[in-house]
Simulated scan of single mutants.
Amino acid sequence: MTDKDFQRLSQFRYRLRCFLRQSDDLCRAQGLTPLQYQLLLHLKACEGRGWATVGELAERLQAKHHGTVALIDRCEEAGLVERRPGQRDRRQMQVHLLEKGNRLVGRIAELHQPELMHLQEKLLVPGGQ
C-alpha cells in the first residue's frame, strides 16, 4: 500500500467517526441511545413488511441475539416497539415499530441529513478534506 492509500483510509475513518459521534449526540438529545435509534431505523427500513425478526435485527446491528432481545425489551418498555407472534409461524416473534418510535426515528433521521450530506461530499470529492 502507498502513503496515499493510508491517507485515504485514515480520512475515511475520521469522517465516519465524526458522523457517528454527531449521530450519538443527536440520539441522546432526543432521549434515545444510539443503539435504540439504530434498531428503530432498521425497523423503519423494512419496506413492505413493517416488521423484522429478532435474528434480522441482530444481523443488522451486528449484535448477539441475547443482546438484541435486551435492546428490544428496553424499546418495548419505552413504548417504541412491540412484539407480535408471526402470522404464518406463531413461534416466530415479529418486532413492529409503534407510532412513538416512528415519530422519533423520523425526527432523528431528519436531523442526520446535514451531516450525512457533508459526509457524502467529503467521501465523493477526490481528496476531500
Rank of each mutant, 00 (worst) to 15 (best):
Leu20Val: 05
Arg103Trp: 12
Arg17Cys: 14
Tyr37Glu: 13
Leu116Cys: 04
Glu59Ala: 12
Glu47Pro: 00
Gln129Trp: 06
Val105Lys: 02
Leu40Ala: 09
Thr68Lys: 04
Leu32Thr: 01
Arg60Leu: 15
Arg91Asp: 14
Leu98Arg: 07
Leu20Ile: 08
Leu61Gln: 06
Leu104Lys: 03
Cys18Ala: 13
Thr2Asn: 10
Lys100Asp: 15
Leu39Asn: 00
Tyr37Leu: 13
Ala58Pro: 03
Val95Cys: 07
Arg60Asn: 11
Leu40Tyr: 00
Ser10Phe: 06
Ala52His: 00
Val95Arg: 00
Arg8Asp: 15
Pro85Cys: 03
Leu32Met: 10
Asp73His: 08
Arg21Glu: 15
Gly106Asp: 12
Lys4Glu: 15
Asp25Pro: 00
Ala45Trp: 02
Gly106Met: 10
Glu59His: 03
Glu110Gly: 09
Phe12Gln: 03
Leu20Gln: 11
Glu76Phe: 01
Gln129Lys: 07
Gly127Cys: 10
Thr2Ile: 05
Asp73Thr: 01
Ala70Cys: 10
Val81Ile: 13
Leu111Lys: 09
Glu121His: 08
Asp73Gly: 06
Gly86Leu: 14
Thr68Gly: 12
Trp51Ile: 05
Lys122Ala: 14
Gly101Arg: 04
Val95Met: 06
Gly55Lys: 04
Gln129Cys: 12
Gly86Thr: 06
Cys75Trp: 04
Val125Asp: 13
Phe19Arg: 06
Lys44Glu: 14
Ala78Pro: 03
His65Tyr: 13
Lys122Ile: 08
Leu35Gly: 04
Cys75Ser: 14
Ala70Asp: 10
Gly48Glu: 11
His112Lys: 07
Leu57Met: 11
Asp89Leu: 12
Leu57Lys: 01
Gly48Asn: 05
Lys4Arg: 05
Ala109Phe: 07
Leu35Cys: 05
Leu61Cys: 13
Cys46Ile: 00
Lys64Val: 11
Phe12His: 05
Met1Arg: 00
Leu39Met: 12
Ala45Glu: 13
Glu76Ser: 13
Glu77Tyr: 03
His118Val: 09
Thr33Ala: 15
Phe12Ala: 05
Gln87Met: 10
Gln129Val: 08
Glu115Lys: 01
Gln92Val: 15
Gln7Arg: 07
Val69Glu: 15
Ala63Lys: 06
Glu99Trp: 04
Arg90Lys: 08
Cys27Lys: 00
Cys75Gly: 11
Leu43Ala: 11
Arg49Asp: 14
Gly86His: 09
His96Leu: 15
Leu119Trp: 11
Met93Pro: 03
Val125Lys: 11
Ile108Glu: 13
Leu20Lys: 00
Arg21Ala: 14
Ala109His: 09
Arg60His: 11
Leu111Glu: 14
Gly50Asn: 06
Ala58Leu: 10
Ser23Val: 00
Leu80Pro: 07
Arg107Asn: 12
